[in-house]
């Protein structure tokens, strides 16, 4: 096909096995979505575990959930939502060829992402201090179950809550770290002026990933922080 060779000559980003840029873009987009689909199932195993034990140990989990700092959790949710806005603005800037706006928003996303991890770090530190980290030094004695003032939470069941809290938020944080890595790379590429209104797939795909991680947190926040919160 002389056509495709012509395009290839014009577009250094077009890989040899694609006929045209649109095909390459569609492949990247589908690939990203499918990858996010597998991520849903990856977290899905944890959601299943969560559902089983929350159903079985609701009171103990309420008590454990109440020890989480809802202000920090909500702040982090807001931070992530803001980062999602900067991401979508970055994508828009890339598509409309506004290089400085693109770089600015990518940097803002990086700042917000780092802030999220920082706040998460503060929360983790507090868990260590309170001996709420599952393992040998775990302690959760004499914590009353919400709504049942004469009943103490079973420490073992609370430990399962904290185990899942750490696995779920830990995996989420790991995804954030990967996301920050991707965004650093995007920033460098944007700095070098690689993205044009014609070629900006990496920004778009990085954005999809970032939004997905945001959605996971949107669920983690109520599931972990808001069990049986009312007085």
């Amino acid at each position: 096909m002389p056509d495709s060779q012509l395009t290839a000559a014009h577009n250094p980003a077009l890989l040899h096995h694609f006929a045209e840029p649109q095909q390459q873009r569609d492949a990247a987009s589908l690939g990203t979505w499918v990858f996010l689909g597998t991520e849903i199932m990856f977290f899905g195993g944890l959601f299943c575990t969560y559902l089983v034990y929350r159903r079985g140990y609701f009171g103990d989990w309420g008590a454990a959930s109440k020890t989480l700092d809802v202000t920090l959790g909500a702040t982090n949710t807001a931070v992530l939502i803001c980062s999602s806005l900067t991401v979508v603005l970055a994508v828009w800037a890339a598509q409309t060829g506004r290089r400085r706006l693109l770089i600015g928003n990518l940097l803002a996303t990086l700042v917000l992402g780092t802030a999220f991890l920082g706040i998460k770090g503060i929360e983790y530190k507090e868990k260590f201090e309170k001996h709420h980290v599952p393992g040998a030094s775990f302690q959760f004695n004499n914590v009353r179950i919400p709504g049942h003032p004469d009943q103490y939470a079973n420490p073992s069941h609370a430990e399962i809550f904290f185990a899942l809290y750490f696995v779920m938020t830990g995996l989420h944080a790991l995804h954030m770290i990967v996301g920050i890595g991707i965004f650093i790379w995007l920033t460098v590429m944007a700095w070098k002026g690689r993205f044009t209104p014609e070629y900006n797939t990496p920004v778009e795909m990085g954005g999809l990933y970032w939004h997905f991680v945001d959605i996971i947190w949107i669920y983690l926040f109520p599931l972990l922080y808001l069990i049986d919160r009312h007085p």
């Binding site: 195993g45 575990t49 040998a136 696995v167």
Partner: peptide, 24 residues
Amino acid sequence: LLGTPVIAITLVLVAAERALHLGI
């Protein structure tokens, strides 16, 4: 695509349970 992630996370839980005795 849809099955393998579940065993991946399950093996993570087994490893974590074995190392830290989480109770899961």
